[in-house]
């Protein structure tokens, strides 16, 4: 019961936060729809390139709508002693954080689905061949990224630093997944395994498989390693939350 309450509150605040919407929704959505559409119209054989790029831009949605957004929202609420006030109620710590994560993940999945439909209509990118695979990893990826965002707040001393301390991951994730085009091929090859180990890349890899040709067997094979990657990141996030999460700003 109370989990639904925190979930509802968090969702309501998400869509009302006019300060955050440009970073949490408009930019990721704009890039995920705009860049593939541009690709479609300027290059020959544009549909393939557009599809390639669209899948990469999902990393931007994951890091903008999930990670960046929850990090900024939670550090702000921590600074304003809103988390403290929530803790003065009958809610448990788990209900408060889980509500935030679940709501952020939901908004993220909504943005991903909107962009998939939009590029289908605007850039002729086909819909995923395996929508279940797409959906499972969209949800899992969004949840893991939101949980990582909760954990990351512990490293941020003040609310104003939340965005600057989180934006680098947005660009890194976009770069690694090809959302910025094939720049990644120009970087030294020893960086590639590191890029592939990012949670955003894990989701993008599976989503790529869900768009490409394949069978149930090949889909499951493609999902195995990324699932493991996401599980490891989820573990890291949960352990750091346990160890370091702060409900109030450090006064000292």
């Amino acid at each position: 019961m109370s989990l639904t309450a925190t979930y509802k509150l968090s969702a309501r605040l998400f869509w009302r936060d006019k300060g955050m919407l440009p970073a949490s929704v408009i930019t990721p959505l704009g890039l995920a729809i705009g860049m593939p559409t541009l690709m479609r119209n300027v290059t020959a054989g544009g549909v393939t390139a557009a599809a390639q790029m669209f899948v990469g831009t999902l990393a931007l949605i994951l890091s903008g709508t999930a990670f960046l957004n929850i990090t900024v929202a939670l550090t702000m609420r921590r600074d304003q002693l809103l988390l403290k006030r929530l803790r003065a109620t009958r809610l448990t710590d788990r209900q408060i954080l889980l509500g935030e994560v679940a709501s952020t993940a939901t908004q993220t999945v909504i943005v991903m689905v909107i962009s998939a439909v939009a590029v289908h209509l605007l850039a002729d990118v086909p819909l995923p061949r395996d929508p279940v695979l797409f959906a499972v990893f969209a949800v899992a990826g969004a949840a893991v990224m939101a949980t990582l965002g909760v954990a990351w707040t512990a490293a941020i001393p003040r609310g104003e630093l939340a965005a600057p301390m989180t934006l680098p991951f947005f660009f890194l994730a976009g770069l690694a997944s090809g959302a910025m085009g094939p720049i990644v091929d120009l970087l030294p090859s020893w960086l590639h395994p590191f890029f592939a180990a990012l949670p955003t890349s894990a989701v993008v890899d599976v989503v790529r498989a869900s768009y490409g040709p394949g069978t149930l067997g090949s889909d499951l094979a493609a999902a195995a390693v990324p699932a493991l990657v996401l599980a490891v990141w989820a573990g890291v996030a949960l352990l750091s939350i346990r160890r370091w999460f702060r409900w109030e700003t450090r006064k000292s």
Partner: peptide, 19 residues
């Protein structure tokens, strides 16, 4: 402790009732 500045007093109480 802080409040959500854009909610009204009534909305705040309603939300807290959910908790």
């Amino acid at each position: 402790a802080g409040f959500f500045p854009d909610l009204t007093a009534g909305q705040t109480v309603e939300i807290w009732r959910d908790f």
